[in-house]
Simulated assay, not measured.
Amino acid sequence: MTDVSLSQNAARQIKAIMAKQGVDRFMRVAVEGGGCSGFQYKFDFADAPNDDDIVIERDGAKVVIDEMSLEFLSGSEIDYTQELIGSAFKITNPNATAGCGCGTSFSV
């Protein structure tokens, strides 16, 4: 069991993307080294979970996170925001001690 959650807006957007593509896939969320602050979030798609993936599901939307990334994402919420400057998936991460202006890079 994981304590990473998926907001209703994120679930709705993932389902909309999958419907547009005409396939039932998973959104992959990962943490990689790099970015302005040391770590960055990566969003991708996967046909199936890997053996070490955790699967989060809400309202039919499915997200996979690998074990290594899960350590950095514990307690986080994956959201989808629509703002004047654009729309994007966003992670509210209580483990991040600093972030950059773009919102995709953080440090712990």
Results as ranks from 00 to 15, higher is better:
M1C: 12
I17N: 14
T92P: 05
A46M: 09
N50C: 11
D66V: 14
C102K: 07
S105V: 06
M1E: 12
I91N: 04
D53T: 02
I17A: 14
D47F: 08
E71I: 08
D3K: 07
C100A: 03
Q82M: 05
N9L: 06
A96V: 09
F72V: 11
S69E: 05
G38A: 00
V63F: 04
G38K: 02
I65M: 12
T81A: 06
A48S: 04
T92Y: 08
F43C: 08
R28Y: 02
K62M: 04
S69F: 12
N9M: 12
L84A: 12
A96R: 02
C36H: 03
Q82L: 10
V29C: 13
V23Q: 11
A30Y: 01
N93T: 12
G99M: 11
Y41A: 15
D44P: 01
D44C: 06
S69D: 11
I54E: 03
G86L: 10
S76Y: 00
K90E: 15
D51W: 06
S37C: 03
S76V: 10
G33T: 12
V55K: 04
M27N: 04
T97N: 07
S37E: 11
L6I: 15
I14G: 01
G22K: 06
P94I: 06
D59C: 03
V108K: 07
K42N: 07
S76E: 00
E57R: 13
C102G: 07
I91H: 04
S87G: 05
D3Q: 09
S7V: 01
K42F: 07
D79F: 14
E32N: 05
G86W: 04
M1R: 10
L70Q: 10
V63M: 02
L70E: 00
V108L: 14
A96K: 02
I14E: 04
F89H: 09
A16I: 12
S5P: 03
L6Q: 02
D24G: 08
V23R: 12
G35D: 07
A16Q: 11
T97C: 08
I85G: 04
S5W: 12
E32H: 13
L73Y: 11
E67T: 09
N95C: 06
V64M: 03
F45T: 13
V63A: 01
V23D: 14
A96D: 03
Q13I: 04
M18Q: 08
V29F: 15
D66W: 06
I85M: 13
M18N: 13
G38D: 12
F89A: 06
A19T: 12
F43D: 08
T92F: 15
N9R: 08
G103N: 01
V64E: 09
F106H: 13
E71P: 00
D47H: 02
K62N: 05
D47L: 03
D24P: 01
A10V: 09
S107Y: 00
Y80C: 02
I91M: 07
R25D: 15
G101P: 11
M1G: 12
